[in-house]
Computed example of a mutant assay.
Amino acid sequence: MKIIRLLSSFCLITVMLTSAGALAASESSDPSIAKTYDGTYLVKLNSVTTPPNDVIEKLGGKLKKISESGDIVMAELSGSSLYELKNSPDVQYIEPNYEVKTEVEAEKIESVTETIPYGIQNIHAIEAQQEGYTGKGVKIAVLDSGYSQHSDVKVKSGYSFITNSENYDDDFGHGTHVAGIIAASMNGEGVVGVAPMADIYAIKVLDQGGRGSYFTLIEGIDWAIKHKMDIINISFGGENPSQILEEKIQEAYDAGILIIAAAGNDGYMGDDTILYPARYSTAIAVGAIDSSNKRAFFSAKGPDLDLVAPGVKVLSTLPSNQYGMKSGTSMAAPHVTGVAALILDKNKKLSPGEVADILESTAEPLGVVPEYGHGIVQAKEAVDQTAWK
């Protein structure tokens, strides 16, 4: 355990940089080469007493957005303004605002008679539901591309940090699929989710091209903290570490929120390919396996892998009331999120660390830790090991 530490298709997660490497506020730099650092940055302020606009613009930068917490801003900085700003007493540190992007395609199915997808069966979710645990009342923030109205999965509410509005319509299709894996209804049609009675909140942090940034991810986490979510599902990630993002993940964890994140789909690229934020100690990193419980060739590997779950040709909901299969650790993570919701349904008083301990101690081992973590998550076993509230 860490301390708890993308349709028949392959969901590929890539990361693009919007600017150069991270710069600490105390770091010095030659202003003659500062022009090479023009770009969009995350700025962590020392306090919120000085208006962020004053801090950024008095040194030639352009303030783009302020986080809910008020101490993190996104700003466009020229090389010269970056050089001045990073030495300001108002600034803790500055980092590039890395961009995350999901690339997916889908095999669509117009309609299906109610089907129990193989992933739901392989993790023994139906048995847990038959014991009366359905995720009822558990609040889950799905940070993704939004949600489109679907008869088979209900969403309580949400918000878009792409348009800064309550229109969180899924114009990419990824978020709707993830939501269905977690909580598709038992209604006689379509598919069944892991925790069909869980409360889903669609937080749109990816645009119509499946693109977002570390800042939109941070905004989504802030929303979840403010609205007292129980679980955050993050089915994407980035290759670059970020102290600002890590601190925000820690803040959510300290607020009692369990963070579950896709490990990434670059497992064929090396032996330590887990993405951020899944790699952080206060997030659960989830890899993907197929219907035979074999590791998917693309599933990220490394010592920080915590669990695996079905992530190959996973059937779930799509926009326009359709269904389709997707593959990727994006699909594996919501299986674990659903099981966590079943645990919290039985005992809402458990801390994120306690839920993670149950998930990991009841997982079925499948192989070596860098490829399978503690093994495949097991819903019935996890619920059975959970003490009554």
Results as ranks from 00 to 15, higher is better:
residue 311 G to I: 04
residue 331 M to Q: 15
residue 80 S to N: 10
residue 3 I to P: 11
residue 83 Y to D: 10
residue 174 H to R: 03
residue 282 T to Q: 14
residue 208 Q to T: 07
residue 349 K to D: 15
residue 69 S to C: 11
residue 260 I to C: 08
residue 330 S to M: 09
residue 263 A to S: 08
residue 173 G to S: 05
residue 326 K to I: 15
residue 64 K to R: 09
residue 172 F to W: 03
residue 342 L to P: 12
residue 1 M to G: 06
residue 9 S to K: 11
residue 244 I to G: 09
residue 225 I to Y: 00
residue 301 K to F: 14
residue 377 V to R: 05
residue 89 P to E: 11
residue 56 I to K: 05
residue 352 P to G: 04
residue 91 V to F: 01
residue 38 D to Y: 12
residue 276 Y to D: 07
residue 242 S to W: 06
residue 185 S to G: 05
residue 57 E to F: 02
residue 252 A to M: 06
residue 74 M to I: 02
residue 260 I to M: 08
residue 159 Y to N: 09
residue 245 L to G: 01
residue 121 Q to R: 15
residue 337 T to A: 15
residue 210 G to R: 01
residue 135 G to E: 00
residue 232 I to K: 00
residue 122 N to Y: 09
residue 304 D to T: 13
residue 101 K to T: 03
residue 289 I to M: 02
residue 314 V to N: 11
residue 334 P to E: 07
residue 246 E to Q: 14
residue 148 S to D: 15
residue 384 D to Y: 01
residue 73 V to Q: 03
residue 36 T to I: 14
residue 164 N to G: 06
residue 367 G to V: 02
residue 44 K to C: 08
residue 74 M to S: 05
residue 302 G to C: 04
residue 1 M to E: 05
residue 282 T to I: 07
residue 279 R to Q: 08
residue 329 T to V: 07
residue 123 I to T: 08
residue 5 R to Y: 00
residue 176 T to H: 13
residue 336 V to W: 10
residue 211 R to F: 09
residue 215 F to R: 11
residue 52 P to K: 08
residue 71 D to Q: 04
residue 34 A to W: 12
residue 13 I to W: 11
residue 230 D to R: 00
residue 108 K to Y: 10
residue 287 G to A: 00
residue 235 S to N: 04
residue 150 H to D: 11
residue 166 E to A: 13
residue 190 G to Y: 07
residue 310 P to S: 06
residue 130 Q to A: 14
residue 147 Y to P: 02
residue 330 S to H: 09
residue 184 A to R: 11
residue 145 S to I: 03
residue 127 E to L: 04
residue 96 P to D: 00
residue 119 G to W: 01
residue 55 V to R: 14
residue 94 I to V: 04
residue 168 Y to D: 00
residue 357 D to Y: 01
residue 156 K to A: 12
residue 233 N to Q: 12
residue 356 A to Q: 14
residue 363 A to F: 00
residue 211 R to A: 14
residue 336 V to C: 10
residue 92 Q to F: 12
residue 161 F to V: 08
residue 263 A to F: 05
residue 1 M to C: 04
residue 274 I to V: 02
residue 211 R to S: 15
residue 72 I to T: 11
residue 223 W to Y: 15
residue 278 A to C: 04
residue 3 I to D: 10
residue 313 K to N: 12
residue 145 S to M: 06
residue 225 I to T: 02
residue 346 K to W: 09
residue 283 A to F: 07
residue 124 H to M: 13
residue 114 E to G: 09
residue 382 A to P: 08
residue 262 A to F: 00
residue 32 S to P: 05
residue 123 I to M: 07
residue 314 V to R: 06
residue 44 K to V: 06
residue 127 E to V: 02
residue 167 N to I: 13
residue 305 L to D: 10
residue 291 S to R: 15
residue 191 V to S: 08
residue 201 Y to W: 02
residue 215 F to A: 11
residue 387 A to E: 15
residue 15 V to I: 12
